[in-house]
Amino acid sequence: MKLAITTSGETVDAALDSRFGRAPKFLIYDVESGAFTLLDNAQNLQAAQGAGVQAAEHVARAGVDAVITGHCGPKAFRVLSAVGIKVYTTDLPTVAAALAAFKAGSLSQAEGADVEGHW
């Protein structure tokens, strides 16, 4: 199972970024092996519109099963739902803390967008 976690850093100890569409990077984490790769999202940081849609396409192409982030807007949520990617939102401070919570089953799955676009 592969997860995409929004982050501004490059390791599991880095901070979890609370934004989805405009997160600087996605840490793509393989739950079975514990290995991870980084997916750059810098292009979307500058986008005037459509950052959430593009970020969702980006993680969908990376073949992830779920996204862990702070908040998810309506357009991104619609794309993620269409391709069956689950969304978990959390206010935990780091990628490692979010991963631990996910593995412990204590993250709750979002049933819809929790913020407006451009929040």
Partner: peptide, 8 residues
Amino acid sequence: YHAIVAPG
């Protein structure tokens, strides 16, 4: 513009 999106 990502106004029409087909992620597979």
